[in-house]
């Protein structure tokens, strides 16, 4: 059925959001209990996750069905575009917060800590010479910072390439070349997975050989939080791409109607751009 609906599609009442809220309920309490090491927290968290995954399958399954049965007209399509666009904007702001923290420490607080003696004639940290990277004045454990030109550079290449293959997939979808589409999507996912693998390896390397930890002061905190959240987003993106891949295998999407794919590809490119920021500000400078 490919006739465009002439009304804006308003879904019928649905239990998925409620299911999602229940999942979040368990996850919220679960997380709070877990970080306080209450055993019940893990149980609650697991229940929450299970429900969430069930909900995601159900909800997105429904949306995919609605989409394929032609319920979404042009206007619905542009709603999705606006929605996804602004969602990515919020993600940008989320990362901006962490980049802001990195820069605040590098440019302001670390130098302040080092120059206290000069400004006030006395210091809380008399021994401290400011610089970057640093673990801060009160942490004695030494660490080696992560260099940029080994694995991280390779990771940059991986992600940039995956951006290209993703665009290739977009062309394929537009020209209705299904086998190219499958291949390019598959490649994108594989590159993403490889990236995550490398990142995991890098963390192990950092912990075991560089003694670089979450607790390694300003550098450790920003390094792990920024790369960690980025890695988390890559993982999400890869999962979404995988869903798209299976939808492609199931014959979904048309040359003129494939926002499901496009939204994910926007997300993928966004993750790419964040990585460039990371590469420059966390690794390189």
């Amino acid at each position: 059925m490919s006739q465009e609906a002439n009304h804006y599609y308003i879904p019928t009442p649905s239990t998925w959001p409620l299911t999602g809220a229940i999942a979040i309920f368990f996850m919220g309490f679960g997380a709070a209990f877990t970080v306080n090491k209450l055993p019940i927290g893990y149980v609650s968290l697991a229940i929450g996750f299970a429900i969430l995954i069930y909900m995601l399958f159900g909800w997105f399954g429904t949306v995919a069905k609605e989409s394929e049965s032609g319920k979404f007209n042009k206007q619905v399509d542009s709603s999705f575009r606006w929605g996804m666009g602004w969602f990515i904007f919020t993600e940008v702001m989320f990362f901006a917060g962490f980049f802001g923290a990195l820069y605040y420490m590098r440019v302001l607080s670390v130098p302040w800590l080092g120059e206290m003696e000069i400004a006030y004639g006395t210091s809380v940290w008399p021994e401290y010479a400011a610089g970057w990277p640093t673990a801060g004045p009160g942490i004695t454990e030494q660490f080696t910072p992560m260099g940029a030109w080994g694995l991280p550079a390779f990771n940059t290449a991986l992600l940039l390439t995956s951006g290209l293959t993703c665009t290739w997939a977009h062309w394929a979808i537009k020209l209705d070349k299904r086998s190219q589409l499958k291949w390019s999507l598959f490649l994108t996912i594989a590159l993403g997975a490889l990236f995550i693998g490398c990142q995991a390896y890098e963390y192990m390397h950092a912990y075991s050989e560089l003694n670089l930890k979450m607790t390694s002061g300003a550098y450790g905190a920003t390094f792990y939080m920024l790369t960690g959240f980025h890695g988390f987003h890559v993982t999400l993106g890869a999962i979404m791409l995988t869903v798209i891949y299976f939808r492609v295998l199931a014959g979904h999407f048309k040359p003129e109607h494939h926002f499901g794919f496009e939204g994910v590809s926007w997300y993928w490119h966004f993750v790419d751009v964040v990585w460039l920021g990371l590469f420059v500000f966390v690794y390189l400078l």
Binding site: S109, V110, A135, G136, G138, T215, A218, A221
Partner: peptide, 12 residues
């Protein structure tokens, strides 16, 4: 154990 808001770790 991060130190975003702890001077001892270079945070503020």
């Amino acid at each position: 154990g991060t130190n975003f808001f702890n001077a001892a770790g270079g945070g503020d």
